[in-house]
Design a protein around this nucleic acid. Structure first.
Lengths: 115, 115
DNA sequence: ACTTATCATCGTATATTTACGATGAACGAT
DNA sequence: ATCGTTCATCGTAAATATACGATGATAAGT
């Protein structure tokens, strides 16, 4: 099965993996950049900046919203999206924590003493 | 189709998304931590620390090796895995660059002046 | 009330991911 | 040479992801 056995992993591992999943598509990376560059929050013009159909972009936005990296405010028929700075900062901290752990050990080597 | 139109994205966006994909599973996060904690590089005992079958763990290791986050040295019938510190540092820098961009703008708000 | 614009969701097709058991390859030990 | 250990790969099944067009929902404007 493709059923992940998440029971055996820590909350942090699951959280980080989930964030990573949200970032695991070039379109979503690009959307985050677009929303950051446009200081005024953007709406569906994101579609014009991506080589994807409107429904597909909507799905990507949904995924980013799912993990809280962006927010969307309904304004009439439009929806105004913007990056969630607070969440981005928090996520950045979590990632930093992970990489601090992963790189703290200095350089290790696999070189096994070939006997 | 599930064919990603990667033509329209930058190399950096594709690279970051690819790294994120490699990190998008709790087991792979955990494997990286295990390889870091064990100062001496580990072999297949990783399997014993994960709630997954040996073949599944092997697949996860392959994915991490694909993006260069870990290395594996064949030592007889065993394979000695270890975290690739250099790669981890480089990846960390790339991620930092991204988040610096994403968080540089200060706090934005979606709050549309409800007229 | 009707149209237009904007966006989400539905339905669907295909690709990829995740997982497992089974098998195969490499090597050390007997 | 045979056996056991270790690990990758194959084959396969189910879940998820990606993408699109079509449809539905909402609100502004006519």
């Amino acid at each position: 099965m493709a059923q992940a056995k998440t029971e055996e992993f820590t909350t942090e591992e699951i959280y980080l993996a989930d964030i990573a999943k949200a970032l695991s598509h070039p379109a979503r990376i690009k959307i985050l950049k677009i929303l950051t560059d446009m200081n005024v929050c953007m709406c569906g013009d994101i579609v014009d900046l991506l080589p994807l159909a409107q429904s597909t972009v909507s799905q990507h936005l949904k995924e980013l919203k799912r993990v809280g990296l962006i927010k969307g405010d309904i304004d009439g028929p439009k929806v105004c999206y913007c990056a969630n700075s607070g969440s981005l900062i928090k996520v950045n901290e979590q990632i930093q924590k992970l990489f601090n752990q992963l790189t703290k050990g200095g350089s290790k080597s696999c070189e096994t003493k070939k006997k």
